[in-house]
């Protein structure tokens, strides 16, 4: 039984190269629950909490993208600058768990666990984030869509560490909204991220907690692009809004579980999408 607490990314990569079976722990908010609930018994652990490179964030020189370290705690994503450049991410970060959880949890953890209810994931999906993976032998940059394989399954190889994600800085309204049965500290039973890209006259919609993994509503996006001039704020007609909601609902693949029902989730995610579209077009 070993616990490695490397202080640099290269040490962390060396540790995992040596023992690809080791369990990686970032903030602990998922893994420790599994251990406490007697569902997982790790033998070797590599803790990334002291790898400061993973807690950095930066803006590309040309200002076109922002790169966020996989270990940056959610609490720090409420930072004014991040909130200005990627408001949907800051909004999603604010809804994660409690202040204590936001001090520990991070995008790396959300991606590593890959739960469809992970609050940051719809934002990464809507913004077509690139996930940066590193191993001792190389680096891979893959689209978040390829990274999220299924329910709690992802494309990380055993010897890889999720290092960061890169998001485009887009001109246009973006937002995140979530439904839970409590007014704070609640797991989402439906969530939605909507981002307008004025420059490219595009719109992106991603849904959380209504399918095995995050759902990107590409059909609805394409349809809406044909209906609205996305280069400016529009008046969205009631009929258009309704059809938009119906199309989003069709793309959702929710299930019944102890948290909610499939019917409600479909309704809720469609309602959230309509509200976000309305907000996006409120001058």
């Amino acid at each position: 039984m070993t616990v490695a607490v490397p202080t640099s990314l290269s040490d962390a990569l060396a540790a995992i190269a040596q023992n690809p079976a080791a369990q990686i722990i970032q903030g602990g908010t998922d893994l420790m629950v599994e251990i406490n609930f007697n569902r997982r018994k790790p033998t070797d652990v590599i803790a990334l909490r002291r790898v400061l490179e993973l807690r950095e964030w930066s803006i590309a020189k040309d200002g076109s993208t922002i790169t966020i370290g996989a270990g940056l705690p959610y609490a720090q994503m409420e930072d004014d600058e991040i909130a200005r450049l990627v408001p949907a991410l800051a909004q999603a970060a604010r809804t994660v768990g409690s202040p204590q959880i936001r001090a520990a949890g991070s995008i790396g953890g959300n991606l590593g666990t890959c739960s469809p209810a992970g609050d940051a994931l719809p934002v990464l999906s809507a913004l077509d984030a690139i996930v940066h993976l590193r191993s001792s032998t190389g680096a891979r940059n893959i689209s978040v869509h390829e990274f999220m394989v299924g329910v709690k399954r992802n494309a990380r190889a055993p010897d890889e560490i999720i290092v960061s994600v890169t998001l485009p800085i887009v001109t246009g309204w973006q937002g995140y909204a979530k439904v839970g049965v409590r007014n704070a500290m609640v797991i989402s039973i439906a969530s939605c991220c909507l981002a307008v890209d004025r420059t490219n006259s595009a719109i992106r919609i991603a849904l959380g907690a209504v399918g095995p993994t995050i759902i990107r509503c590409r059909a609805t996006e394409a349809w809406l692009t044909s209906q609205l001039d996305l280069s400016s704020v529009n008046t969205v007609s009631t009929n258009l809004l309704k059809e938009f909601g119906d199309r989003v609902a069709q793309e959702a693949k929710p299930i019944d579980d102890h948290r909610s029902t499939a019917v409600y989730r479909r309704h809720a995610v469609s309602t959230l999408a309509k509200r976000l579209l309305t907000r996006a077009n409120t001058p």
Partner: peptide, 13 residues
């Protein structure tokens, strides 16, 4: 508001 930081509802909802 209803939903709190989830930004779920606006006053008009």
């Amino acid at each position: 508001l209803v939903g709190g930081s989830g930004l779920t509802s606006l006053p008009q909802n």
